[in-house]
Amino acid sequence: MNKWTTRGLIFSALFAGVMIAMSYLKFTLPFSAVPITLQTLAVMLAGSILGARYGTLAILIVIGLAAAGFPVMGGQGGLAVLVGPTAGYIFSMPFAALFIGWCAQRMKQNKYTFFKLAGVNLIFGVLLVYPGGVSWLAHSVPGIDTVSKALTAGMWPFLPGDIVKSLLGASVAAAVWRVYPIERILNSDTGGWGSQEETPASR
């Protein structure tokens, strides 16, 4: 397994800041306890640009700061946020970044890069997050006592926007890859978790 690198840790901290900033861009729906934010876009970008290890770390940094009481979740923080109605979505995000990053590390850049990233974002950045998020929402909010109500409050209104985010995230990541490949973050030849550290002879 690759060693942790200073470069990767710095980028993880930077993307944690990006996620915090994006969490402030939100608006609420009158029929749901779940706000619409750009946090899921930040998760997609973290995974696809930083890879599995550092992308996941970026999300865990934000969750850790929230647990410590810092207002990093749309101006809110503390343990109450991590057990509130949106907790299921929050704790699904590190797994989303992990799987997006795992796939991104193994992608070859070609004319289909955008479509591959968009598919990975949709599967892991959107569809993976909903089961835990909607289930916890139904558990924690009184009155959500049917599957239909749970989906209306926690999935259907957000799905179109999340699809757009998956496309936008893929577009941004593909553009970043052209000038700053993911291998530079990982400091490795192949970008895999088990690859050797890059040496001058291998560049």
Score class of each variant (00 low, 15 high):
residue 138 A to T: 15
residue 124 F to Y: 09
residue 84 G to T: 13
residue 127 L to S: 02
residue 46 A to T: 01
residue 64 G to C: 08
residue 48 S to L: 00
residue 45 L to D: 04
residue 54 Y to R: 14
residue 143 G to E: 12
residue 160 P to Y: 05
residue 80 A to G: 15
residue 94 P to W: 03
residue 49 I to P: 01
residue 117 L to Y: 14
residue 47 G to N: 03
residue 49 I to R: 03
residue 167 L to Y: 06
residue 164 V to P: 00
residue 100 I to K: 12
residue 89 Y to Q: 08
residue 131 P to M: 11
residue 103 C to H: 07
residue 117 L to K: 05
residue 55 G to C: 07
residue 122 L to C: 10
residue 103 C to R: 13
residue 80 A to Y: 01
residue 50 L to S: 05
residue 126 V to N: 04
residue 88 G to C: 01
residue 50 L to Y: 14
residue 47 G to S: 04
residue 64 G to A: 13
residue 51 G to W: 02
residue 124 F to A: 00
residue 63 I to K: 08
residue 126 V to H: 02
residue 154 G to D: 11
residue 50 L to K: 08
residue 44 M to I: 00
residue 151 L to C: 07
residue 155 M to C: 13
residue 78 G to Q: 12
residue 162 D to H: 01
residue 142 P to N: 13
residue 139 H to V: 13
residue 120 V to I: 15
residue 139 H to M: 15
residue 142 P to Y: 07
residue 81 V to K: 11
residue 87 A to W: 01
residue 159 L to N: 09
residue 125 G to F: 01
residue 45 L to H: 04
residue 144 I to D: 00
residue 88 G to E: 02
residue 91 F to D: 04
residue 75 G to V: 13
residue 73 M to W: 05
residue 174 A to R: 07
residue 68 A to V: 02
residue 83 V to T: 15
residue 94 P to F: 08
residue 171 S to R: 11
residue 72 V to L: 09
residue 115 F to T: 14
residue 126 V to Q: 01
residue 149 K to T: 07
residue 163 I to V: 10
residue 159 L to Y: 03
residue 156 W to K: 06
residue 57 L to N: 05
residue 138 A to Y: 08
residue 76 Q to C: 00
residue 73 M to Q: 09
residue 52 A to G: 13
residue 103 C to V: 15
residue 51 G to M: 06
residue 152 T to Y: 02
residue 72 V to G: 03
residue 58 A to G: 10
residue 62 V to I: 10
residue 87 A to T: 11
residue 71 P to L: 14
residue 46 A to G: 14
residue 121 N to T: 12
residue 69 G to N: 08
residue 140 S to L: 10
residue 173 A to N: 01
residue 47 G to I: 07
residue 170 A to M: 11
residue 148 S to D: 09
residue 174 A to P: 08
residue 65 L to W: 06
residue 98 L to S: 00
residue 75 G to C: 10
residue 76 Q to R: 13
residue 64 G to M: 06
residue 103 C to L: 14
residue 157 P to I: 00
residue 110 N to D: 15
residue 54 Y to C: 11
residue 173 A to M: 07
residue 118 A to L: 12
residue 95 F to D: 04
residue 165 K to A: 07
residue 145 D to P: 00
residue 129 V to L: 15
residue 103 C to M: 14
residue 160 P to A: 14
residue 53 R to G: 12
residue 53 R to H: 12
residue 124 F to H: 02
